[in-house]
Design a protein around this nucleic acid. Structure first.
Lengths: 121, 121
DNA sequence: ATCCTTGTCAACCAGCTGGTTGAGAAAGCT
DNA sequence: AGCTTTCTCAACCAGCTGGTTGACAAGGAT
């Protein structure tokens, strides 16, 4: 359970059932039984899924009589989007620069200069 | 291998080593050996990681002499961001509506109407 | 031709994962 | 007090995962 936060979040969402539950919870809080209803698995299995989501910080559970309503904690999404956006942007930037280089090339440049080595970086 | 695309992508990125490789590839293409250098694992292990990333569509490999340069396919990120944004927005919207309701309440509304029960928590 | 570099494939292994069943805690209902 | 509802904990099991080592294919280099 000591894995880094990002790994836990990605891992939690790697399961379609769990993603489905998150989708359901985006509509509003729900009890374990309500969440379990659509699936053909034991209540215990659903409880386990919820534990995974909770450990990842995606969900919180309070207490209300015997029921334990589950609540989506959407802030954790930011962790992922931050990570994703960073590298997406970096890749796009690289792409853009490559385009610029290609656009700036004169028409008759030989593709392979003398140096047999790969360029740095 | 037949798992849905989204599960494969999330699952691939649930491993810190693989996320690290993606980060490295955002800078530019790299060979398997180059990618393996920073890690204290066998080349075969790295090769396996790359297979996972490739199966998830996050990466593509071409051939160039004996080398197999690895290239980041950043479009797949959109799959995730689309999914995430959808539910994030839904949850935020729900939040906003709740705020509206609270703001619209008159100032002197008793939280617990008829029943003379415990104080408002 | 032979060797070296680069990388993959196959078999194996320990540990995690998602499922099951059984037992039981917690809180309301009668 | 006793029953019912809601949910979790514990033990077990099959299958996937990430790692290992050994063999070998593909393609220069000598």
């Amino acid at each position: 359970m000591a894995a880094d936060a990002l790994s836990q979040v990605f891992s939690a969402l790697a399961d379609p059932t769990r993603r489905d539950m998150v989708a359901r919870l985006a509509v509003g809080d729900a009890t374990v039984n309500e969440l379990a209803a659509p699936y053909d698995v034991s209540l215990q299995a659903v409880s386990k899924h919820l534990k995974v989501l909770e450990d990842a910080g995606l969900v919180s559970r309070s207490r209300e009589a015997q029921r334990r309503p589950v609540h989506l904690e959407a802030q954790v999404f930011d962790l992922m989007t931050t990570w994703i956006e960073r590298y997406r942007r970096q890749a796009e930037e690289r792409y853009r620069r490559l385009d610029d280089v290609l656009a700036a090339l004169p028409d008759d440049v030989p593709p392979m200069p003398p140096t047999p080595e790969g360029p740095p970086t």
